[in-house]
């Protein structure tokens, strides 16, 4: 970041809504690492993660008009775009097949399938906080956040009543808050 231009979030959003390419360059410099780390926590193959990051920035460009600052910060909005794109890929047929070919045993919370990442995807971002949770909580957050299953699907998979799943996820999330701050 040679030139030390900084924007307030409001200024940045206004420029982005104007489709200012320099502002997008700044956005990339500032947030690509954070977003990339959120992607590799879900998609563990580097080439696919690269594609997702590119898709995420194109989506930010296309949908920036719909961003509403009253509903949350810009990073939160982008993080959700990145998570949705990653989970869409995770659930796509092509990805499922590439995973089968890698013939590595399924593991609910193992982040090292396929071409493993350096550093270990378990050791960054939210996953690091998740690693500190109790086993039963960790599996639920893994399924709900990193695999994108609905609460109903998780109840089915883990053979746990839906109410229990909801309560445990909420409780795990509040614990994660204290682990983050």
């Amino acid at each position: 970041m040679g030139t030390a231009i900084t924007y307030t979030e409001q200024e940045l959003v206004a420029l982005l809504k104007n489709k200012d390419q320099n502002a997008f360059g700044y956005l990339y410099e500032r947030y690509s690492g954070a977003l990339y780390s959120s992607i590799v926590q879900i998609v563990d193959q580097q080439e696919l993660a690269n594609d997702v990051l590119q898709e995420v920035f194109v989506n930010i460009w296309r949908r920036i008009e719909t961003y509403d600052a009253a509903k949350g910060r810009l990073y939160t909005w982008m993080l959700n775009i990145a998570r949705n794109a990653s989970i869409d890929l995770l659930r796509s047929k092509g990805f499922q097949n590439s995973k089968k070919n890698a013939s590595i045993p399924e593991n609910v919370d193992d982040g090292t399938l396929g071409t493993a990442f350096q550093p270990d995807a378990n050791n960054i971002g939210l996953k690091k906080a998740v690693q500190q949770l109790k086993e039963e909580h960790r599996i639920l957050i893994d399924l709900a956040y990193f695999k994108g299953y609905t609460h109903e699907e998780i109840a089915e998979i883990t053979k746990t009543p839906l109410g229990t799943v909801k309560t445990r996820i909420r409780s795990a999330l509040t614990q994660m808050r204290s682990l983050l701050s």
Partner: peptide, 29 residues
């Protein structure tokens, strides 16, 4: 407060994407 904590934590533990990716992204834009 939670958003900021999340963002700061993400920025602190960011994983830099491969350097050539920026060119591809900016070109796509």
């Amino acid at each position: 407060a939670f958003e900021i904590a999340l963002e700061n934590q993400a920025l602190a533990t960011a994983v830099a994407p491969p350097p050539q990716l920026k060119g591809l992204v900016m070109e796509a834009l």
